[in-house]
Design a protein around this nucleic acid. Structure first.
Length: 834
DNA sequence: TGCTGATGCGCG
DNA sequence: AAAGCGCGCATCAGCA
């Protein structure tokens, strides 16, 4: 070993190192870093380059020069820094070091770190990030300090990366070096200057905390699990961010001084104070739900920073840490999941928790200022925040599951599945759930011609492809898939979620870019319409499940927004648009001949021609036709899909495919084009389409009728592109989808405010429908009221919306998917109402 | 062994 | 060059 051969180094290097193969190709073996023994910070790069290798000095090539320039820019000097690399020999051909080389050379990096003992380390590039912290994703992690074992790490781009990118990331690199300088000057993460955490572990401190609960207060909790009904679900810590600092109350933690009784008392005292404060949460639905489940308290959420940011930019992420960095350049204060769940010492947990509280409160001031758009603020105040609070009760109630129906559904699905599988196994014993194996069997072993490939070029086994194949296995395969999916989604998939006969799904009010809520764990918005599946969800004894849905709401809104006279007229006279479209399509191709003739005959009592039959069907409407033959239901459903397709910008080529897959009708391009033209002749929507596109292109966004924005930056692209075409189609769809969803939420809110929570319990929203459990003695009143609400939602006044097209809805009473109309329910339950 | 992307399919 | 929109999730296969 030699001492100090490297210029400026105080290290003992090993020029004969053979820990990895790089020693064979490098000129200068074991090129350690350079700098003072007690530097302000340590910088770690990737590996020596050509010039470094030749001169035996770290960071002297082009990257080194750029680094010097950047350091100069922010007022840092190389003389105060120790600069080294993860790998200490030059890899040949300018390649990156391999994992093996990196792990072999860690010995030398660890040696350098142990000698220098830096408190601050800058990680230049992904290799250093991975080597020191085991993390990857420099683009995501750069610029934010990460503290570990008392050392502050700052990931940033490697200067070579900046050079490769033509210096377009130079400003970012310089900004990150400024952060480094801040950290050096402060001796740690600067933002923490503002943090004033108090671990509330004595009664005097409780008093101090309660006294601080005035004005705007941020609220946050830490928990052992994400699911409040899990077996080992506990609140680890709860607390409040105030003007006087952050107060962290340890609850379920091995070092907590509090008994369960103490905690209940503290929660009770805090609950009183929170009545009179402005309560700020980040995704408060989560915290409020937990507090309700575990302590039985109803904490009110006045301002949700996640939902506020969702309205400010629906395309972005909305996580607390992400926003704190975006708005304040905050450090990464995250700790490992395991520690958050209660396995960190209390002071460490309190510090983490204090960050959450501090930045939630800080974001409140920032975002309430940024919600300056009056219309958006109105959506926030009158829809999102009330809905966020209502959803707590909705999720808390959960959906009642009928165990008997679930068992029946399972038995039926399993027997169907067995039958289908038995039939399939004639063709080969494979895993029929694997698209790859199915593809191989069909297209290789059975030598069927593959009708289409997937996006990635693999032979497709999708339903669309299968429908083009003439083979007896196809029908069985489609059945097999359907039953298999239903079994694993809606029976097996649900079972683990059941708690006391109920499933508590989680809704995200920020789940979509259009304003619709989404639903997960499980997703109750994708339950098949099959009665066997749907009616698993019902209401317990003493309660009735009520479903209210807004009839054809998207189409009504399209009529309203486009002002197309024929569409508006259709809704004024109560005509069914999808029915009209369905019959138009059939007539064009003289399709479903026997069904048309048979249905018309049944209705008429005498034989008719095909054309007369179509006319009779047109007059009788879908409901009467479905009564005669249920096959009409499917036909109308398919026409509906086509109408929506055209409405939202589908082109004739896709219709061709649609007709082939769904009607089994092979039509020419020309015929498809004519079909589309016929639709637009009937409903001239083109002008409206263009105006939506124009607005998006001019402003870069479109709005719902409630004022919610859908930002479409690509709509402003100067040239025609797939992205712009997509944005333009979204410009047509979003105002409708978003308005429909807001309307649905408004109906839900109005229902909830019309009756006490002891009488009406909303449980699910499905885009244009709501489901609620209603106490038996209130069913008739609530159902009637719901119909009134849907005809004229009181909340339309708040948004100053006036409809020319009538809106209405229908209610169904009874298990989901098999409920009956109010009239029928009245007949069957006469005299049960108070 | 756990993660990611592709595929496929349920709903509105 | 390509042309309905919006979701969640189970499964498989490839990869580390």
């Amino acid at each position: 070993m030699e001492i100090g051969e490297t210029s400026g180094s105080i290290m003992q290097r090993d020029p004969n190192c053979t820990l990895c193969p790089l020693h064979k190709t490098a000129d200068f073996v074991c090129l350690l870093g350079a700098g003072p023994r007690r530097p302000q910070a340590m910088l770690i790069g990737e590996a020596p380059g050509q010039r470094e290798d030749a001169e035996g000095r770290a960071f002297v090539g082009r990257a080194g020069q750029l680094l010097d320039r950047m350091l100069g820019e922010v007022g840092l000097s190389r003389d105060d820094l120790y600069i080294t690399n993860v790998v200490h020999c030059r890899p040949p051909n300018n390649r990156s070091p391999t994992r093996r080389e990196i792990s072999a050379c860690m010995k030398w990096l660890n040696y350098e770190v142990s000698m220098i003992k830096p408190k601050i380390i800058a990680l230049l590039g992904n290799v250093a990030l991975k080597a020191m912290l085991g993390l990857k994703g420099i683009k995501k992690l750069r610029g934010r300090p990460i503290e570990r074992d008392g050392v502050t790490y700052l990931p940033m781009y490697h200067p070579s990366y900046i050079l490769r990118g033509d210096n377009k990331d130079l400003p970012t690199g310089i900004a990150d070096l400024r952060t480094l300088k801040d950290i050096i000057e402060y001796g740690g993460v600067p933002e923490e200057r503002d943090l004033r955490p108090t671990l509330v572990d004595t009664w005097p401190k409780v008093e101090q905390m309660l006294a601080a609960l005035t004005g705007s207060v941020s609220v946050d909790i830490e928990t052992t699990t994400l699911y409040p009904w899990a077996k080992d679900a506990r609140v680890v810590m709860f607390g409040f961010g105030t003007r006087a600092g952050e107060f962290d109350v340890p609850a379920f933690h091995k070092d907590s001084p509090w008994t369960d009784k103490d905690i209940s008392r503290i929660v009770e005292l805090a609950t009183d104070k929170l009545e009179d404060t402005i309560n700020v949460y980040h995704n408060g639905k989560y915290d409020c739900l937990w507090m309700k489940v575990h302590y039985g308290v109803n904490w009110r959420n006045d301002f949700d920073t996640l939902l506020a940011h969702y309205l400010i930019d629906e395309n972005s992420l909305h996580g607390l840490e992400f926003l704190a960095r975006l708005y304040f350049g905050a450090p990464n204060w995250d700790i490992p999941l395991e520690e958050k769940q209660g396995n960190a010492p209390l002071p460490k947990l309190a510090k983490y928790h204090a960050h959450d509280l501090f930045y939630t409160r800080k974001l409140f001031f920032e975002l309430s200022h940024e919600l300056k758009d009056k219309q958006i603020k109105r959506v926030f105040r009158h829809i999102l925040m009330p809905a966020a609070n209502l959803f707590v009760h909705m999720e808390h109630r959960g959906c009642y599951i009928d165990a008997t129906r679930m068992d029946e559904a399972e038995r039926w699905l399993r027997s169907e599945l067995t039958k289908a599988e038995l039939a399939l196994n004639k063709w080969g014993k494979i895993n029929w759930g694997s698209p790859k194996q199915v593809g191989k069997l069909l297209y290789n072993d059975l030598s069927i011609k593959c009708p289409q490939t997937t996006r990635k070029g693999a032979p497709s086994t999708s339903e669309s492809a299968l429908n083009q194949i003439d083979h007896p296995a196809v029908a069985d395969l489609i059945r097999y898939r359907g039953h298999r999916q239903q079994l694993s989604f809606f029976v097996e998939g649900w079972r683990p979620y059941i708690v006391n006969s109920r499933i508590h799904p989680s809704f995200k009010l920020h789940g979509t870019v259009t304003g619709r809520p989404s639903c997960e764990h499980p997703n109750f918005q994708q339950v098949p319409r099959d009665t066997r599946i749907r009616s698993q969800i019902t209401a317990p004894t003493g309660w009735t499940l009520v479903e209210a849905d807004l009839s054809q709401i998207e189409l009504r809104l399209a009529a309203e927004l486009s002002r197309v006279p024929s569409m508006m007229e259709a809704f004024r006279t109560g005509l069914d648009i999808h029915w009209k479209t369905a019959l138009g399509e059939l007539e064009r191709y003289a399709g479903q001949r026997e069904l048309v003739l048979a249905t018309a005959r049944a209705a008429q009592g005498s034989k008719t021609s095909y054309a007369e039959g179509i006319e009779i069907l047109r007059k009788m409407g879908p409901d009467a036709a479905i009564d005669i033959d249920p096959a009409w239901k499917e036909i109308r459903k398919r026409a509906k899909a086509v109408s929506f397709g055209y409405l939202y910008g589908m082109w004739h080529k896709k219709f061709r495919i649609y007709a082939r897959d769904n009607y089994g009708i092979v039509i020419s391009d020309e015929e498809a084009r004519k079909s589309r033209e016929a639709f637009f002749d009937l409903y001239p929507l083109t002008t409206w389409h263009h105006s939506c596109q124009r607005i998006a292109a001019d402003y870069g966004y479109v709005r719902t009728m409630t004022g919610r924005k859908r930002r479409l930056p690509h709509a402003q692209d100067g040239h025609d592109s797939p992205e712009r075409a997509e944005a333009w189609r979204q410009a047509i769809n979003s105002p409708i989808q978003g308005t429909a969803s807001d309307l649905n939420l408004m109906v839900l809110l109005e229902l909830a405010s019309a009756y006490p929570r002891t009488v009406v319990k909303p449980i699910i929203t499905v885009h244009d429908a709501i489901l609620a459990e209603v106490r038996d003695d209130y069913v008739e009143r609530v159902a009637t009221r719901l119909l009134e609400i849907m005809r004229s939602p009181v909340m339309l006044k708040i948004f100053d919306i006036h409809f020319a097209v009538p809106i209405c809805g229908e209610v169904k009473l009874g298990p989901w998917g098999s409920g009956v109309s109010l009239e029928r329910w009245r007949r069957e339950n006469a005299g049960n109402q108070k």
